[in-house]
Nucleic acid binder design. Sequence first.
DNA 1: GTTATTTATATCGCGTGCGATATAATGTTA
DNA 2: TAACATTATATCGCACGCGATATAAATAAC
Lengths: 146, 146
Amino acid sequence: MHPELQLDNQICFRLYSAARLVTQAYTPMLKTLGITYPQYLVLMVLWEKDCQPVNDIAQRLLLETNTVTPLLQRMERLGLLSRKKCERDKRQHIVCLTARGKQLEEKAYELIPAGMGEQLDACHLKLQEFQLLAQELDSIINTLKK
Amino acid sequence: MHPELQLDNQICFRLYSAARLVTQAYTPMLKTLGITYPQYLVLMVLWEKDCQPVNDIAQRLLLETNTVTPLLQRMERLGLLSRKKCERDKRQHIVCLTARGKQLEEKAYELIPAGMGEQLDACHLKLQEFQLLAQELDSIINTLKK
DNA sequence: GTTATTTATATCGCGTGCGATATAATGTTA
DNA sequence: TAACATTATATCGCACGCGATATAAATAAC
């Protein structure tokens, strides 16, 4: 019985569980918008800067293109965005929001910050603790992303 | 442009990314053992206490049984565990480690703590910061698990 | 200028996660 | 005890993630 191999001592299991649970907390609100959490991430990237190549979106989300491509294809089918060949470099596909994709920003703004604020308030973490958490996660992320 | 909807302000995106990256950091070592990360979690649960019903394993991992059942089926096919009907309550399936499943504990002990220690050292977080991180994640997990 | 290499994206296969539903065994209740 | 509700597990469908590989376009090397 090695304490290093106990579930309760695993930072990774905590990250894995917390990520799933927080994503689940988003789900009811995202369902109202008709999207999933990874799709919401893509929208956030495009709300920040519209019309980006697949690769830039993937890098921003720290995902591989073989994850992002099918994600974008599903979102295109949902009418949230369009993908067009770039004239300058015909290898690139430029991804732009449709009117419907843009409109979701306001709906998300009405629903999500309030809804998630409530849930995270219930965690009884102070603002300072959330900032610390963010910093610690950033250390891990910046170290482990190649 | 709502700051609440920016990727860089999302604690959830940090959790999502950190969890994926840390899991990826485990992958080379787990590949040596011939298992995946969720399979490793199941093994840790059973190394701690062998022969548990499906439901107990699922609850320990905060997963639904419809995730755990196929996971256990794959692990049974790999020869890591066996599932037997409980005589007392024939609805329950008791999951026990095979010799092979038990042997993996020593191999994991040789490979994983050292390997992960190295990777997490590179994050330049102090022991105290890791403990704080664990506490903050526990607050979130305990609040959001129903 | 043709060949080789790199880059951008896509396709395939498989293992999760999870909502929805099904099935069988146990418990409860009228 | 027959009808109903609950519990334990399984099945199904779909959306990720990601390793491996394929394809086409651009770039570099010769």
